[in-house]
Simulated assay, not measured.
Amino acid sequence: MKKIRVLVVEDSAFMRKLITEFLSESSQIEVIGTARNGQEAIKKVKNESPDVITMDIEMPLMTGIEALKIIMNENPTPIIMLSSLTSEGAENTTLAMQYGAFDFIAKPSGSISFDLHKVKDELIEKVVAASRVNVERLQNKTNNTESALSDLSSYSTIGSLNKRIITKIPAKKGDSGKKIICIGTSTGGPRALQQVLTALPSDIGAPILVVQHMPAGFTKSLASRLDSLSEIRVKEAEAGEIIQNGTAYIAPGGFHLKVKKVGMSLAVDIDQSEIRNGHRPSVDVMFESISNLSDYMKIAVIMTGMGADGSKGLVELKRKGLVKAIAESQETSIVFGMPKAAISTTMVDSVENVQDIAAAIVKYC
């Protein structure tokens, strides 16, 4: 079996050795070389053509972000970023996702993590997953980021047209008119969320709850960036806040996102109950909580990501109420695991390319 050829890019000699040792424990992986900074990385990518790169964000001479941009433009390769758990690290990680990084790993204890063994299995799993991705999807997402944003007005027009059309359709029996949108995603999700949330009109008549698999410290930066690009408001969810139409609430890393009734309104409920499907936040937990809202129509969306989180929750949503379910297509998913699992339940109403998901949401609203 052909091994996955990995280049390790890290300015710390200790971290280079540790990452190399961890990856070499997998029979599927071969570390073909290391680099101390972004400049060395660019040269070695040209000469060695690795299958996957692990890249530190903070390095001298040339940062990981700068090297990422050049590599994705000149020699597109799946890149996993290693980020420190700082506010600056979180902001840079969010940028890296937009520039085409496959995914990221949060270093448990700063730039030099003596306890990196805590994320060893996650690192190996993501390297294996990255080796299977169609790198053109990463490159296309990178190149289309600005054009997608420049098309915001046309997306909004599409949404408005769909909204006008849908008002001519009689309300379904049992539909109280109250709606809630819930979105689950993982690997590749930040870019997918950018395409979807930036295309929703500000007057959309429903709140949006989002679970993006991310560790604590990173979701606030993601929410802030998406808020700056979107017509709707986007924020990290806070316990107890009343949920408003036209606002997207992203589950805080490390917390499950649920909803609870407060009088005639809904409020955010977050907790650190048991990890589900290896994740907290979990899409299944969010979907199951929303399934208990008997007087709401739900629009459920499952996009790119590893694993099957969200599929069981989708079944529960459909069992308990009126639901329209959308899954991202294999054609545009960075990783087709979560959408594929959702589709296999036979509960999905439509399969859409990522650029068409916002219009589908507005249609169902």
Rank of each mutant, 00 (worst) to 15 (best):
Q330P: 00
L116I: 15
L7D: 07
G177H: 11
F218Q: 00
K258Y: 10
R137I: 15
D115E: 12
A41F: 04
D284A: 08
A308W: 12
M347H: 11
V362C: 14
S49W: 07
T54W: 12
S154E: 14
I290K: 05
L161G: 11
V31D: 01
K120H: 11
S294M: 03
K312D: 14
I290L: 12
L209F: 13
E10Q: 14
A251H: 04
P76F: 09
V45E: 04
L293W: 05
S291I: 05
A223R: 09
G110L: 14
L322H: 06
S27R: 09
P201R: 08
E58M: 11
V128P: 02
S186Y: 13
N37K: 01
K172N: 11
T157D: 13
V259G: 02
L209V: 10
S294A: 06
S311Q: 13
V135P: 07
M297P: 00
N134S: 12
A130Y: 06
K363N: 01
L23S: 03
S150K: 10
V354L: 13
E231W: 07
S154P: 02
E88T: 15
K340P: 05
M59F: 05
S176H: 14
F255I: 07
S202P: 00
Y155L: 08
V335H: 01
D271G: 04
S160K: 11
S12P: 10
N37Q: 04
D51W: 09
K258F: 10
I124V: 13
E238N: 05
G313N: 02
T86D: 12
K320C: 02
M338V: 15
P60L: 03
P201E: 12
A342K: 00
V354E: 00
Q139M: 09
G89L: 03
S109P: 03
K260H: 05
H213G: 00
M303E: 10
T77E: 11
D175Q: 06
D309T: 10
S291D: 14
E136C: 05
A327I: 13
K44T: 01
V128N: 03
R280C: 05
I232E: 14
V315R: 08
G307V: 08
A90E: 11
Q39W: 10
P339V: 06
A171T: 02
F102L: 05
Y296Q: 06
E328G: 08
V323E: 11
G205Y: 00
N92K: 11
T345V: 12
G263Q: 01
S344K: 08
